[in-house]
């Protein structure tokens, strides 16, 4: 395991750091379209928007792991599903907070009941309820099955309310209601060259966080198992010695 091509296990982590360094430096330095109201805040496109893109991708991966768990019954899949949901929600919270700051300085208030804002808040609450549900069941097998089913259902509720419903009404967000998508302020395609690496970089960072959460949980369960085994062995020995 050690030194066995550390590049094999670390290449995507190096890529994460490289992409995010590129995002931070170029996100500040590169030329952006000069637009009214937005001014320099257009650079938030590299930091606020990838949070939501990353969240959607991470939650999609979590949903896939839930399906995999229900098909295989392998607890590792369930742990990974929960970890990816965790990382996704972390990004979602960052997304909603950064969105509030951005809204205050361009739309005038922190929260203006924009359909997309409300939908995102509902989606986050939905996933909070996922964690409440998951942690309220002590039996690990039951916990895994119930939370996997919940995760799949929540994903397919979350996607329509965040992507479809805001398009049916008026929204301040670009690409929703009567507003054009960010293609219009992406005119020079300079921003695109930073935006896509930013999305990939932030998503990979989320994957890294999810990876660490999942492995911590696996170690915790193994540890618990080892301790239980040990204690049962001990008690068995004690009982043996008492009998003898």
């Amino acid at each position: 395991m050690e030194n066995k091509n550390w590049i094999v296990t670390w290449w995507w982590k190096i890529l994460t750091v490289a992409l995010l360094l590129f995002t931070i430096v170029m996100g500040m330095m590169a030329e952006v379209p000069h637009l009214y109201i937005l001014n320099e805040t257009i650079r938030n496109l590299y930091f606020h928007v990838p949070m939501w893109f990353g969240m959607t991708i991470l939650l999609f991966v979590a949903m896939i792991y839930s399906v995999k768990f229900l098909r295989s019954g392998n607890p590792e899949h369930d742990i990974k599903s929960a970890a990816f949901t965790n990382a996704g929600i972390l990004f979602g919270i960052c997304g909603i907070l950064t969105g509030m700051i951005w809204a205050q300085f361009t739309w005038g208030v922190f929260w203006n009941n924009d359909p997309k804002e409300n939908a995102a808040a509902v989606g986050l609450l939905l996933y909070f309820s996922y964690f409440v549900l998951r942690n309220s069941i002590d039996d690990l097998e039951k916990q895994a099955r119930v939370s996997s089913v919940a995760n799949i259902i929540f994903y397919f509720i979350f996607i329509p309310i965040i992507f479809i419903v805001p398009r049916l009404t008026d929204s301040l967000h670009p690409g929703n209601g009567g507003n054009p998508g960010f293609n219009t302020y992406d005119l020079d395609s300079n921003m695109r060259m930073i935006f896509y690496p930013a999305v990939i970089g932030w998503t990979l960072l989320g994957t890294w966080i999810a990876n660490i959460i999942a492995r911590t949980e696996i170690v915790y369960r193994q540890f618990q198992f080892a301790v239980n085994n040990h204690s049962t062995n001990n008690s068995a020995k004690q009982i043996d010695s008492k009998i003898k």
């Binding site: 931070i24 500040m28 330095m29 000069h34 001014n39």
Partner: peptide, 17 residues
Amino acid sequence: VAMADVMRSNGKIYVVI
């Protein structure tokens, strides 16, 4: 349009970075 061009031209943006 008000942009932070001055900040970039005199190099202070490097501090933020």
